[in-house]
Design a protein around this nucleic acid. Structure first.
Lengths: 344, 344
DNA sequence: GTGAAAGCGCTAACAT
DNA sequence: ATGTTAGCGCTTTCAC
């Protein structure tokens, strides 16, 4: 390993000078500068980021807390977050909490404020107390996707209008004539998905179709969850459309329909929320409400960096662009039979 | 932030003693020990990992270099790697190189040996020279999945027998009676996939069916790549089975078949390699050759840690368990018609 | 058993 | 324009 002072020695100057030329700080003589640069080159010097961090009192990394990077939603967010961090000269440490608040806390305890300057949370399964305590220790925390733009969480966050996302799904289904709708409610009772479901119901009410929801099932937020619940929901042939609060169960529903020989979208419409990669790739391609995932990731990193630079900012809430309906091949107008049946 | 010396002061001892009780090192008096622990508790002290790293001359993080964490293959590997690292008290920095050797080099330059003690590479798009130089600087490098167990790469690695993976696919297809086989060759010409393809061909030769491959197409290693190539490959209805060197194009092929109204597996068999999550979830579920992804990740981390502890180990190669054929719903015996046609 | 002191590699005043 | 001098928070000999 080559150190600053070795470079200094080689260049016949002192390490402070080397530091200065490397960080373009104080004015350094043109000739000295060249000599230093040559020494850096000759010795293959690379700054020791850990030492620099200690001296500067700040770390070059940010922590990203997710339930599991293997969940198909996170990688897209993580990629965008890492790129954004990278552009600001920061590295990203990925922390999988496995939805266990204790693992999350252990992570926060260890790295927040020591190894990482800030924490980006994309996982609701962390205790708010732990997050606040992390903040108090001096490491900013931002919530990567807060579901209620109109109800700040008391922590810095980037809000995404999940209520609207649900509403968009409802309007789409109603516009297609669906009046017998099933809901696949993912991710546990008191979670982020409830806002989506509320948006769905509210839109239904606005449109005068509050009674259109004929089935609601809570499912594990996964393809498998949607698959098993789907088989049950589809059994009696009542519903003509299914709204899943997330793409994964929606995809599972697609499979359930296929297994039962039910044609999508001819006999059944399916809509999800998020627009993950596999939604585009599914057969039929999934109609869904796209979330501004990448934008939210980039905004989160930007906010985090601002908070690190200026901790007195409080708990600002930034709002990402609105979710957007993406119509693909899994939704269509309600089959005639169903429309008739409804009128009796 | 609470520092060691603050704790020391609070406990009426010196920081060396606090350090000792915290790291269970030198013998500390039972009574002092209790007092220190109480102070730690009272002040909410957490060790500053960066400072510790600098003092110890080693970092608590490992770097994982991947092309893109958003590629469906990497998250599973990354999760396993992070868990393994975690169990050894290490954190994982994820570096997306976007298949750009220059980005990879920039990463290596910056973090290897300073922020991270070692580098796990899951991406062939890094220059070997850069990796060797990283090693020379004192940061061990391990290749997460080396494709040739019988040809060590000159760098520490965990080998997975990709030749066998290809062979297993071939034997399966031949056993089912397929004699008109198309190959979707993913990931660029001189890449990791060539070993799989070679394994496929070698097995064919062994079985006396070298002429069974009637189409070979190079495709982008993605669902889209398989989809577009698939449409073309299937156009004339010649092939009865398709071997894709990776699951992603295999999945794309499934879609291409669906789009053309070709039934899988009744009219067409499709087999991939890897066994990513979506292979299980596809309809029909994809027959594939499962790679020991998680084991390779865990072994890679273990090897990396060994090398960090003992740099004089050289370039050991560990071999992960053999790939395994996983028969699901996308392959079946060749349709009769095809068998007949072959005999004319 | 506990303390004193040096130092990890770098930064940032402050001198000169 | 360059050098001197303190640290950053922790670990680790080496004395006592």
């Amino acid at each position: 390993m080559t150190t600053l002072s070795q470079v200094a020695q080689h260049a016949g100057v002192t390490s402070a000078t080397v530091s200065n030329v490397l960080r373009q700080r104080g004015k350094v003589g043109e000739e000295t500068r060249a000599r230093v640069l040559a020494a850096v080159e000759a010795l293959g010097y690379r700054p020791h980021l850990t030492a620099r961090a200690l001296a500067e009192g700040s770390a070059p990394t940010l922590a990203l807390m997710v339930a599991s990077i293997a969940n198909p939603f996170y990688p897209e967010f993580a990629l965008a977050a890492e790129q954004a961090a990278r552009q600001h000269g920061r590295f990203l440490i990925v922390c999988n909490t496995n939805d266990d608040p204790d693992i999350g806390r252990a992570y926060l305890d260890q790295i927040a404020g020591t190894l990482s300057d800030g924490v980006l949370v994309m996982n609701a399964k962390l205790r708010v107390d732990d997050l606040k305590m992390t903040q108090r220790r001096g490491a900013p925390v931002v919530l990567g996707m807060w579901e209620k733009p109109h109800e700040p969480p008391g922590l810095p966050c980037v809000a995404v209008d999940f209520h609207l996302a649900g509403a968009l799904a409802a309007r789409h289904l109603i516009a297609l004539g669906h009046r017998k709708i099933g809901i696949l409610f993912g991710g546990g009772a008191s979670c982020i998905h409830s806002e989506r479901e509320r948006g769905f119901h509210d839109a239904l009410a606005e449109l005068g179709h509050s009674d259109a929801v004929v089935r609601i099932m809570h499912v594990h937020d996964s393809v498998e969850g949607g698959l098993s619940a789907g088989a049950e929901m589809l059994a009696d042939g009542l519903v003509t459309a299914v709204f899943a609060t997330n793409d994964l169960p929606a995809l599972g529903m697609l499979h359930a329909a296929a297994d039962l020989g039910i044609k999508v979208p001819q006999q059944l419409s399916v809509i999800g929320i998020t627009d993950i990669q596999s939604a585009r790739q599914a057969r039929p391609a999934l109609t869904t409400v796209a979330l501004p995932t990448e934008q939210a990731a980039a905004m989160s990193i930007a906010l985090l960096l601002e908070l690190i630079a200026n901790p007195s900012l409080g708990s600002p809430m930034r709002t990402a662009e609105a979710p957007q309906l993406v119509v693909r091949a899994s939704t269509a107008v309600v089959p005639k039979r169903r429309l008739k049946r409804r009128s009796d």
